[in-house]
Design a protein around this nucleic acid. Structure first.
Length: 444
DNA sequence: AGGGCGCCCTCAGCGCAAAT
DNA sequence: ATTTGCGCTGAGGGCGCCCT
């Protein structure tokens, strides 16, 4: 008997012991202890073959049966694998309850080689069913199980689970946490394992979080690192996000022409693949770029085109952005009442989606509009609301910007409040400099 | 003799589920 | 929500064998 088979024999012994309702202790005697049996079952390498053979004998298993039992075991494993592939397809087909039922029905023990995969898929179902806490528990469990069983080493379940934990944190407005999880995912990722797409999802997510945090420089570094291998990305959606991010980063650093180039390439790809969410996002982005280039009529058409997709969007998360940017455009066009209405919609959308990064932005834009119309007290109210969210969720760049705007408002009204803002600004700026050294004020 | 190594044991403590 | 009990595991240590 080869040592490679030792673990598999252990699994068979465990299975048969459980089938007969025996505990370790029940099998132990003067010749073999419970711990040793446990060692054999887990395939601990230094256990003697004699003990294993003794155990097989005690269970009345003929050694000649073993190849047959191994084969049977392998067949069963393949069936479970197929079932889990079905679960993944059901998830794609949005049949979350059915997918969940299938996992429960498999009833996998913790030591099953595919238990980690099952836990991971369970987490994904919980996310879609809106239960983030249970999803997180499932992902933690998947990570624990993946580390327990050596056959998970090349399945990248740990990396994928960390990646998903990042998404959970992001959905709960914990961007710093999201980035930490994504870093953990990167640390756990195996280059020659399964689920290679996760590699690009990690890059993509990290860049998205950095964008939301306003850390443009770090975001650009991530995109540059991945850009040359973009052709390796098989998922159109991931590719589209990279085009979107690249355009977004160019736009925010004032590179309108570059931004235009990548937005148009992305739009092309989105149209080709009939991807309505990104058709929507890229038209929104084009609207922003044209607004900043002062081509206001074209910009308006862009936003109008984007909003035509409003009712067929399955993910409403970016809708708030479009309304906010449309508001900015109306401000440029001096259409103040339309602007107010658009920004109000932006605020509502962001609230509905619980997207605090976007909400602070929409509130800030509303403040800008009020301030422009000399309604300073009202403007302060909006800025202050935005500031509270920004502080609570460590959106420090936005916090800095809001403090600046508040300082401007207070300047003529209340010297004491003005001083308070300036002091806070100074502190936030120092914090940001400590963190990455290259603080700068990006465009929105 | 004594150091290294393999095998197996004990024991504290963990995680889970049933009981309260 | 907390306690209790069970099954199991990992750490650490003892024992015996082999080699130098």
């Amino acid at each position: 008997m080869k040592t490679v088979e030792l673990q598999e024999i252990g699994e068979i012994i465990r299975k048969i012991r459980k089938q007969r309702g025996l505990r370790l202790e029940d099998l132990a005697d003067n010749n073999i202890s419970p711990a040793t049996i446990s060692n054999i079952e887990r395939g601990v390498p230094h256990v003697s073959m004699d003990k294993a053979l003794y155990l097989l004998d005690k269970l009345k298993i003929e050694t000649s049966q073993i190849p047959f039992l191994l084969m049977e075991e392998e067949n069963e494993l393949r069936n479970v694998e197929l079932e889990l592939e079905m679960v993944e397809s059901l998830w794609k087909l949005k049949q979350y309850d059915k997918a969940m039922d299938k996992i429960e029905h498999l009833n996998l023990e913790d030591n099953h080689p595919l238990a980690a995969t099952a836990a991971y898929l369970k987490g994904k179902c919980f996310v879609k069913k809106g239960n983030l806490k249970r999803a997180e528990r499932a992902y933690y469990n998947a990570i624990k199980l993946a580390n327990q069983h050596s056959s998970n080493n090349d399945k990248n379940i740990e990396a994928a689970s960390f990646c998903e934990l990042g998404i959970c944190a992001y959905m709960q407005n914990d961007l710093e946490g999201a980035i930490q999880f994504t870093n953990s995912a990167w640390g756990a990722f195996k280059d020659n394992g399964d689920r290679q797409y996760v590699r690009f999802v990690i890059y993509r997510n990290k860049a998205v979080y950095l964008d939301k945090l306003g850390d443009i420089h770090a975001g650009i570094r991530v995109i540059e690192e991945v850009w040359d291998s973009l052709h390796e990305v098989e998922e159109v959606e991931t590719q589209l996000t990279f085009y979107w991010l690249r355009a977004e980063f160019h736009r925010k650093t004032g590179g309108d022409n570059e931004a235009l180039k990548y937005a148009k390439q992305g739009l092309d790809l989105a149209v080709k693949n009939n991807h309505s969410k990104y058709i929507f996002d890229f038209w929104t982005m084009l609207g922003c770029i044209y607004t900043s280039q002062n081509e206001l009529d074209i910009a308006e058409s862009c936003f109008d085109t984007a909003l035509s997709a409003k009712d067929i969007l399955s993910d409403q998360r970016t809708l708030s952005t479009t309304f906010a940017k449309l508001g900015v455009l109306y401000v440029h066009q001096n259409k103040d009442s339309e602007a107010k209405e658009a920004i109000r919609q932006a605020i509502t959308c962001a609230e509905n989606q619980n997207d605090l990064s976007q909400l602070t932005y929409a509130l800030m834009v509303m403040g800008d509009l009020l301030k422009k119309n000399n309604e300073i007290r009202e403007a302060i109210e909006y800025y202050q609301r935005a500031l509270d969210f920004a502080q609570k969720h460590t959106l420090q760049r936005r916090e800095y910007k809001l403090l600046f705007k508040l300082a401007e408002c207070w300047h003529s009204l209340d010297e004491k409040e003005f001083q308070k803002c300036m002091l806070n600004m100074y502190q936030v700026k120092r914090l940001l400099k400590d963190k990455d050294g290259d603080f700068f004020d990006e465009m929105d």
